[in-house]
Design a protein around this nucleic acid. Structure first.
Lengths: 209, 209
DNA sequence: TAGATTGTTAATCGATTAACAATC
DNA sequence: TAGATTGTTAATCGATTAACAATC
């Protein structure tokens, strides 16, 4: 959509945080906010907020600030929450189940519409109201349902191979929960959630702060 | 331990990635590697690797490179994987279960030794071989078992209150899975895993790359 | 209109990259 | 010893912060 100058990763990763803050304000029926006020709530600088937002357009008004409803909508759009992205989960373990059941993810507009596993005992059982299907069915399912995203919650040994298959089946983005770096064609979006990396960073922080 | 100059967050977050790469090399029985080779494997610059490592000490040798075993050990230490950190999980849902069962996390030296919930139906049942206890027991448990880390996998409405309690009970670090920013005393280490933020970043990438 | 606050340009700060003397 | 490669200092690049004219 907006491909002005290439927005930095740091800016992108702040957008969901803005969204959370704006959501709170909205629920408190606050109508407008200045970059200054917002910066205090979020422990950022006002300058950074204005700079960040200006990557995507002009959302404020001099002398007034930002309309919360409008800014919330705008950032939501940028993050694709109105795209109706369809998600499948590969791997019906605890992580796959957690994602499938997550209201939070659903509320942000990412809809889990299929779950796949290779364990025959699980096939046909349901998570939420979604039936677990055999992984052999995934190719057909992706094509006929125009799936956008695959969440990979499978053992790391299998992840690379499955990821490559997903690409050939036409998936646009991979949400990877295995502790490996996927090397895939440029046009495939990848987002990693490396829990073991995360807890080690916590370990570092405990020792050093 | 090593509190030289204050190492930047970016450097810290690369450490687990180094560790993963070194682990692979180790399993391939490779004994040594130069920053150049390592940089190619990891899609970084050799300069950055040397700069990163130099924040923590001198691990290499001119003309030789880095001993993989030694570097692996050194980074592991920096990340606290030898500290025998004890972890409790608050919330025995799917996320809590996933963490508890994770071999990866255990292999990195973070030991889940207790799980707590407020759902009476769950009390006494086990995950792995750990009994779920009522949350009323958590204070006593933390003190008598010298727990370091609490993983918070509970609904976001309850997270702030529980987090504050954890602090008073003497927890050193919080691994927070709720989509809120915790404001706690400086000396408490916090690491957030915001899955909904993560999938929105993926949504952005799909639209823009 | 006067005050407030934006979007943007310029200045600063920090992180990454390049270069190289030290040394294994 | 000669070649390789480190750790570190200097240069560059990018991100954050400050300043301010534009304008609601």
């Amino acid at each position: 959509m907006n491909s002005r100058k290439e927005v930095s990763e740091a800016v992108i990763r702040r957008l969901p945080k803005y969204l959370r803050c704006l959501g709170e304000l909205k629920s408190k029926k606050v109508l407008r906010i200045s970059s200054k006020e917002l910066s205090e709530r979020m422990s950022l600088t006002a300058s950074q907020i204005r700079q960040d937002l200006s990557c995507f357009g002009e959302f404020g008004q001099q002398g007034y600030g930002y309309n919360i409803e409008y800014l919330n909508e705008s950032i939501s759009k940028i993050l694709g929450t109105y795209n109706g992205f369809k998600v499948i989960v590969i791997g019906a373990g605890n992580m796959g189940t957690a994602i499938t059941k997550s209201d939070r993810i659903k509320n942000r507009g990412f809809n889990v519409v299929g779950i796949f596993d290779n364990n025959k005992d699980l096939i046909g059982t349901t998570i939420g109201n979604i039936k677990i299907q055999h992984i052999d069915k995934v190719k057909e399912f992706i094509k006929s349902n125009k799936i956008d995203i695959a969440a990979l919650t499978i053992p790391k040994e299998q992840t690379e191979k499955i990821a490559e298959k997903m690409v050939t089946y036409g998936i646009k983005g991979l949400w990877n929960f295995s502790a490996i770096e996927l090397k895939l064609p440029e046009h495939i979006a990848i987002e990693n959630v490396h829990l073991s990396d995360s807890i080690m960073v916590l370990g570092y922080k405990i020792n050093n702060e």
